[in-house]
């Protein structure tokens, strides 16, 4: 079953065409990575999939539902079905890590008290953070810890689909590989589907099941990472040459 199905997506900023009628599908349980030069509309595409922006034309189905025809209350309700990790982590800075997670549990599932804290503690441990991190504020965390905490928050309602925008940007190579491993282990443990926007060559080649390369408003590659490495397109060649 395809988890995300996008058909003929066209996006425009004024006269500039960002996506020129692109189509793709994300299958259940796969790690789908979107790559592309900066300004190629990777993040915009992600924002369209999570209903923060609307494409100029086209159709998007997520988890079998047409998200572009939803009205606002439906959209609000439906967004519980996925988790999002933003590039800048976007943790609520006046709440502790634990409160960032219990807030979601309280608002969307009505869970509170010790049970919510226990559940939050489990998610915090699951993403590989030490237990003392629960009572820290985002301002007190390192970059890598922030990303992990934001992932724990994205996992709060345990959605089957996660969107990650540049999960390893701003992290050192060791933390980046640690984060890649975390993504793989979560996929195995909880059976999650990931849609990742990345420019990290390692994330692309080591953990992705399928990659999509955007260049000049079009999909220049869609397939397995090992085929992408061998592809002759100038963008892909330069992307993998930097390795």
């Amino acid at each position: 079953m395809s988890i995300v199905r996008a058909v003929d997506i066209t996006t425009r900023f004024g006269d500039r065409v960002v996506h020129d009628s692109i189509s793709f599908e994300v299958e259940e349980g796969e790690i789908f990575t979107v790559i592309g030069s900066s300004g190629a509309g990777k993040s915009t595409l992600l924002r369209e999939l999570i209903m923060l922006e609307r494409p100029y034309s086209g159709n998007i189905e997520v988890l079998g539902r047409d998200i572009l025809s939803m009205d606002e209350p439906q959209a609000k309700d439906f967004s519980k079905n996925w988790g999002v990790l933003f590039q800048s982590s976007a943790l609520f800075s006046s709440l502790t890590v634990e409160e960032n997670i219990t807030l979601v549990l309280k608002e969307h599932a009505g869970l509170d008290g010790v049970f919510a804290k226990e559940l939050a503690g489990y998610k915090i441990s699951l993403v590989g953070l030490p237990s003392f991190a629960a009572s820290l504020y985002p301002g007190q965390l390192s970059g890598g810890m922030k990303k992990r905490a934001a992932l724990a928050r994205a996992l709060a309602l345990e959605p089957s689909l996660l969107f990650l925008d540049e999960p390893t940007s701003g992290l050192d190579p060791i933390s980046s590989r640690g984060f890649d491993e975390l993504i793989l282990s979560l996929k195995g443990a909880l059976g999650l589907t990931f849609v990742i926007v990345s420019h990290d060559v390692h994330t692309v080649t080591d953990i992705s099941d399928k990659i999509m390369a955007l260049h000049g408003g079009e999909i220049v590659f869609l397939g397995k990472p090992q085929d992408a490495v061998a592809d002759k397109h100038p963008f892909l060649k330069s992307f993998f040459d930097t390795k």
């Binding site: 010790v114 441990s125 237990s131």
Partner: peptide
């Protein structure tokens, strides 16, 4: 990944 309930 969980600790004793009393810790929470």
């Amino acid at each position: 990944h969980t600790r004793a309930k009393s810790e929470y």
